[in-house]
């Protein structure tokens, strides 16, 4: 049988495809069939987790520090010591930077410089999720804007999309900068984007987020779709604002303002 080069190549190509298909078809079936994945029994469940920050209860530097430290310690958030490479999940900033455009020059000085606790807003309509090209950041059923750091390619599109500056990129290996690693939680690696997860690993065990636990009642956490939840009660009783709500991302973190001169509970 004689064959010209073109036919030979066609045949070779076909047989390669055939071999590939044969390999795929001949693979053993899924032996894991009998096994299943269940939600943890103790799991705190919600449709949309939300947080209310009662800024009136943050008075001393210590009040902020204990909340921030609680989170950063258990999540192995590195302290890189410079603003360029900085990684942070929860931090504080003054009113005029937390709510740019809302400040006025005549507002009480105390309020203008009041520090606000800032973290990922776990938006109901998150732009970071919309732009991620690999679904590495995604919205969970309980409303948490989560990220799969095994999948992140480090394109940083989510950082450009987030209007709240909530995301940090690992510009260098964070491991050496975690002073006392928590052996129950991973660190991160070079080149992935990370942020607050509303402590999903604690919720799975029936625990409140670490910052909420450390806040002594200054942070209130719960399911915002549940009319009986504490967050809903607090939201019904207090005037609250959200960061940049005009952008339509529907942030799930609310702030009760300190109203100087008022009785604080109005």
């Amino acid at each position: 049988m004689s064959m010209d080069r073109r036919d030979f190549l066609k045949l070779a190509g076909l047989s390669t495809v055939g071999m590939g298909a044969g390999w795929v078809l001949s693979r053993p079936g899924d032996i894991l069939e009998a096994s299943q994945f269940l939600q943890t029994k103790e799991l705190l469940n919600a449709k949309q987790w939300a947080m209310v920050v009662d800024i009136r209860k943050f008075k001393t530097v210590e009040d902020y520090k204990k909340v921030i430290d609680a989170c950063h310690k258990i999540h192995n958030v590195p302290d890189l010591g410079n603003p360029k490479d900085e990684v942070k999940w929860i931090w504080s900033d003054s009113f005029d930077h937390a709510f740019p455009g809302q400040e006025s020059e005549y507002m009480p000085e105390e309020m203008k410089h009041k520090q606000f606790v800032l973290l990922c807003n776990h938006c109901e309509n998150p732009p970071c999720v919309r732009v991620c090209p690999t679904k590495a950041t995604f919205k969970r059923k309980d409303g948490i804007t989560m990220q799969d750091l095994h999948r992140c390619i480090g394109c940083r599109y989510c950082m450009a999309a987030c209007p709240f500056g909530a995301r940090s990129f690992n510009y260098r290996d964070p491991r050496p900068f975690v002073k006392e690693p928590n052996a129950e939680y991973p660190t991160r690696m070079i080149g992935v984007v990370e942020k607050c997860t509303f402590c999903e690993e604690r919720l799975a065990k029936g625990l409140m987020p670490a910052c909420v636990e450390a806040s002594n009642g200054a942070l209130i956490f719960g399911d915002i779709t549940d009319t009986n939840s504490e967050v809903r009660k607090v939201l019904a009783d207090n005037y609250t604002i959200r960061r940049k709500s005009e952008l339509g991302t529907r942030p799930s973190v609310y702030y009760i303002l300190d109203i100087p001169g008022g009785d604080g509970n109005a």
């Binding site: 090209p133 690999t134 679904k135 590495a136 390619i153 480090g154 394109c155 990129f169 070079i190 080149g191």
Partner: peptide, 13 residues
């Protein structure tokens, strides 16, 4: 890219 080895994730997912 921060994780260039994972570039195929754009096609895989």
């Amino acid at each position: 890219m921060g994780q260039p080895m994972r570039i195929m994730n754009v096609m895989l997912h």
